[in-house]
Computed example of a mutant assay.
Amino acid sequence: MRHWLTILTLLPLLVQGQQNLVPNGGFEDYCPNLDQGGAEIWNVQPWDNIVATGGGADPFNVCAQLQIITTDTFHIYSVPENNRGYQFAHSGDGYAGFYAVSDPETYPNGREFIQTSLTRPLHAGVRYEVKFYVSLTEKFQYAIGSFGVHFSIDPLQAADYYLHELPFGTEPQIQSPSGVIYDDKENWMEVRDTLYIPRTEEAGQQWMTIGNFLPDTLSQITFVDSGAGYGYDRSYYYIDDVSVIALDSVPSDITGQEALGFDVWPNPATDVVRFSVRDSHGRSSLGMTIRVLDAVGREVRHSSPSGKEGLGEVDVQPLPTGIYFLELTGQEGRKAVRKFVKQ
């Protein structure tokens, strides 16, 4: 009986650690219906879109009604058959769709972005797995290789709706790997990466925006086929199962993180990184741990301060050149992070 009590006590912690911060990441909680004027992504709460095409992102679901277009009958927003192509949901009954590249002559750099708020802000010192699935629609000719995800404190807006400009001039924190073209019209392709925010002042983002953040000239636009006879000279994707999951536990005392004084030298470093730790509350540095993380938050080295003096060093000579983070975890889960460069 004691073993069962232990398992039940730990279970809520495990579930919390794997909680998806994206509400309605599968676009399930809405039934598109043109008769009620509801075939727009903003009806799939809490999702919205940023448009630079003169249109808007679309919801699709198996519950969508038959709609009449000219002499043909379509399940316009249904699943699996709709006016963009034919695809089953990656899971559940629904998904969304958006233009990743529009007609370059009519809408240069025209595209659509989907956006939602997270259930809680992102925290410093925590690795997040960011993941979603895309499938190129069969009626469109072109594929791209440049999906990105941008996290922001406030919701983003298009710079100029009518000039079809991108919504902002900054790079997304998550960018799909170079050289991968998302050209599969039959299956879902995974887009996944790890996000790591090293410093408290760089955290706090609670809005997530997904789309193609690169201009047409850099979007790796690739001709796939004639678009199932329709020949639409654009790139339109279904998207499903969007998730942001914390891979590390979130400290309960976020406001107390920088109560830890934390110095790192030399920077840049070639062989050894030295550090000193000062606890402004007067507590000993015993029990504190140091981790060296790479640019995506993976641990590559670890160490501990030596006694009350709070001094230590980490051998970084074997590490490849690049940007790294020294993460200190103190008592009560408080964290502080410093960036350094390995030459």
Rank of each mutant, 00 (worst) to 15 (best):
S235N: 05
E165H: 14
T73G: 15
P80V: 01
G148V: 02
S102N: 09
V224A: 06
E105S: 14
T217H: 12
P268N: 01
Y182K: 12
S252I: 04
P172D: 00
T6I: 10
Y237Q: 00
E28C: 12
I239N: 03
S176T: 05
V264N: 01
N212Y: 10
D154P: 01
L13D: 03
K185Q: 13
M208G: 10
K308L: 01
T270D: 15
R234A: 13
A203G: 04
D48I: 00
P318T: 05
H75E: 06
A158T: 13
K185R: 10
S219N: 07
R334V: 14
G261Y: 00
R234W: 09
L195C: 09
V250K: 01
E138V: 09
N212L: 06
V242L: 08
V273A: 00
P305G: 09
Q16P: 06
K139H: 15
S178R: 08
T73E: 09
L34V: 14
L118R: 11
L10T: 08
G17H: 06
L286S: 09
I50A: 01
E332P: 00
F151G: 14
F98Y: 13
R199Q: 10
A259H: 07
I144L: 14
C63N: 02
S249D: 03
L260M: 03
T194F: 10
Q18W: 14
I239T: 02
A336P: 03
G297Y: 07
C31I: 04
A39Q: 02
S306V: 14
M208I: 10
G17Y: 02
E105A: 15
E327W: 10
G261S: 05
F88T: 05
E28N: 15
G110Q: 00
P251R: 00
G282L: 04
F27I: 09
V130P: 15
D160T: 11
S78K: 04
D294I: 07
K342G: 01
P32C: 04
S78Y: 03
S78V: 00
I210T: 10
K342N: 03
L293D: 05
I76F: 11
C31P: 10
P215Q: 03
V15A: 12
A203H: 04
V292M: 08
V272P: 12
